[in-house]
């Protein structure tokens, strides 16, 4: 560094420790603020208006929310979201089970692991199409199988009582794969000496799993729960591809219902859609704050 620099440069020099992070943060933070942070507030505001994307926005106050409480479709969506959340959680133990099954060192096991994982890599659109084909009335594989066993096929996606479960099953497929890979990585890092010590104490099977392995898998399980909750609440793609919310709205979830109200052919109630989004956001916030709280605590502990 030459000493013949302008005073300007040396001012920069003195302050670069403070300024560098600001400059480095600025572009990313700006983009994030414009595309993620500001829209959240904007949606909150919009949810208080009646707006069809064409005319003027009309102030409604809380009327959109009052309407939500009486809206049968909203209740169905909310109920289905709860079903999604509960059943999606099956991915966590199911993923663990497959991980344990695959955590061996026989020949070719790496290929098996990749192939078991690979549903997760496929787009949900494709997963939805695959399962729609699997369930299809009259010629779908599942329909045929059931017909072979019971004599009468079941068209899962035509039955208002079954359709949601059919879609969740499709969603679980990649989700289990995701949880599996988290657990496999976790299992790889379980301290071998602790296992040996426990073995000497006579622990094995489920007991070993419960008292020795699971506590060590806690970080993997935490992430698995987080991604599964988010996945369950984001269940838009499969519903849209497989049923469009039907038959007669029985498979709607909040994320889909919001889109339907705000932007679909029969929709354009953007204010009402925004109100649905706010409710969904509220539900997500319950989980987010829990996750963040735990992460902040870990962060503090690490420092």
């Amino acid at each position: 560094m030459a000493t013949t620099e302008t005073p300007n440069r040396s001012w920069w020099h003195r302050n670069q420790q403070t300024l560098t992070p600001l400059l480095f943060l600025a572009p990313g933070l700006l983009m994030f603020a414009v595309y993620v942070v500001w829209p959240i507030f904007s949606s909150f505001r919009l949810s208080l208006y009646d707006y069809d994307g064409l005319g003027r926005k009309v102030w409604l106050g809380l009327a959109n929310y009052r309407e939500l409480f009486a809206d049968r479709a909203f209740k169905t969506s909310l109920k289905n979201n709860v079903i999604w959340l509960v059943l999606y959680m099956l991915a966590v133990p199911a993923g663990l089970a497959i991980a344990i099954f695959l955590n061996q060192t026989v020949r070719g096991i790496r290929i098996y692991k990749s192939l078991f994982f690979f549903p997760f890599v496929i787009s949900q659109v494709v997963v939805g199409l695959m399962f729609a084909w699997f369930y299809a009335p009259n010629f779908g594989l599942l329909y045929k199988l059931i017909e072979m066993v019971t004599g009468k096929g079941i068209a899962v996606l035509a039955d208002p009582h079954l359709a949601t479960y059919g879609i969740i099953a499709a969603g679980l497929w990649p989700q289990i794969a995701y949880c599996m890979i988290l657990d496999l990585t976790g299992l790889n890092n379980v301290a071998p000496d602790q296992i040996e010590a426990a073995r000497l104490d006579g622990a094995k099977g489920l007991k070993m799993l419960w008292y020795v392995i699971l506590p060590q898998l806690r970080p993997a399980t935490f992430i698995a729960v987080v991604v599964t909750v988010i996945g369950a609440l984001r269940s838009f793609d499969l519903v849209s591809i497989m049923t469009n919310g039907g038959p007669f709205g029985s498979t709607r979830v909040l994320s889909y219902y919001m889109y339907e109200q705000a932007l679909s052919e029969y929709g354009y109630r953007m204010g009402y859609g925004a109100a649905i989004a706010v409710v969904l956001f509220g539900i997500m916030m319950i989980f987010i704050s829990g996750f963040i709280w735990k992460m902040v605590r870990d962060e503090r502990g690490a420092r």
Partner: peptide, 19 residues
């Protein structure tokens, strides 16, 4: 944590303004 929390946000709350 602003960045972290943003990850979890449901897309629908961004939809109309982003569009």
């Amino acid at each position: 944590f602003l960045f972290v929390a943003g990850n979890f946000v449901p897309f629908q709350i961004l939809m109309v303004p982003v569009r």
